Amino acid sequence: MTLLEAYHFFENLKKETTNKTEIKVYNQFITILKKLEKREFTTNEIQSIEVELGNLQLKSNPENRKKFFKKALIKFEKYLKDTFSLTSKGYYTNLSVSLGVLFGVVVGVLIGERFERSLGISFGICMGLFLGAYIGRRKDARAKAAGNML
């Protein structure tokens, strides 16, 4: 499946449904495909992307379309990240914030042993959130400056 065929396929799916969450997934696919068309790839890289789109079996008719296409979107984004180091907007921020909150809870429990437990946990979550957001924004800015952001 070529990039243009996939673009038209998702445009048609978008017109057929009224489910907002389904439309959101289709729009994410469409945005990625548009941005991929604007980038300059070698012939082999384009063929590799098209083979991956074919491997996703997008034209199959699943029962739960939203779930199927959401999984396909995650697989396709992972492929782009692993193969071409391309990330979507906010990728590192989302990842870092979630990891920051996770480690913040752990630090909060440790701090909470010395002080009041709920105060320590809330302090740890806040610090993890802020540090994760800061680190993630910086990594996103580096990816954008390097041209690796979709």
Rank of each mutant, 00 (worst) to 15 (best):
G104F: 12
T93R: 15
K89N: 06
D140V: 04
V109P: 02
F41V: 05
I30Q: 10
I30G: 01
D140R: 00
I30S: 00
L102A: 11
G54I: 01
F130K: 06
K38G: 09
E22A: 14
L4P: 00
I49C: 05
L56W: 07
F130N: 12
S85D: 10
T93A: 07
L80E: 03
E16D: 13
N64H: 13
V97Q: 03
F103N: 03
L150Y: 12
S122E: 07
A6P: 02
F76P: 00
K15D: 06
V106E: 07
L86N: 02
V97D: 01
V51E: 11
I30D: 04
E22M: 15
F10E: 06
V105R: 07
K75Y: 06
G90D: 06
K78S: 15
G147R: 03
R137F: 08
F115E: 13
K81P: 01
L102P: 00
N64T: 03
K78E: 15
F29E: 04
S48K: 06
E50D: 02
F68R: 09
I49W: 01
T42E: 14
E22D: 09
R137Q: 10
R39V: 05
I30C: 10
G90W: 04
M1I: 04
A141N: 12
G124N: 07
C126G: 06
K81D: 11
R117S: 11
S96F: 13
G132P: 01
K70F: 10
T42K: 14
E37K: 14
V97N: 04
L36H: 01
G124C: 06
T87K: 13
V97R: 02
G112Y: 12
G120E: 02
V97I: 11
N27R: 08
L80Q: 04
E52F: 11
T43L: 08
S48T: 07
Q47V: 05
A141S: 10
M127P: 01
K66H: 03
K59D: 11
S60K: 15
K67M: 13
L13H: 02
F69V: 00
E52K: 12
G132W: 09
K14M: 11
I121R: 01
I49Y: 01
G132Q: 06
A133G: 01
K35A: 08
I121P: 01
G136Y: 07
K144H: 07
N61C: 05
M149R: 08
E50L: 05
G104R: 12
K75A: 14
I121A: 01
K35I: 05
E22T: 13
F115Y: 15
I46Q: 03
S85A: 10
G112P: 04
N55I: 05
L73W: 04
T93N: 08
M1E: 03
G132N: 00
N61K: 15
K15C: 08
A6S: 10
L110E: 06
H8M: 10
Y92T: 00
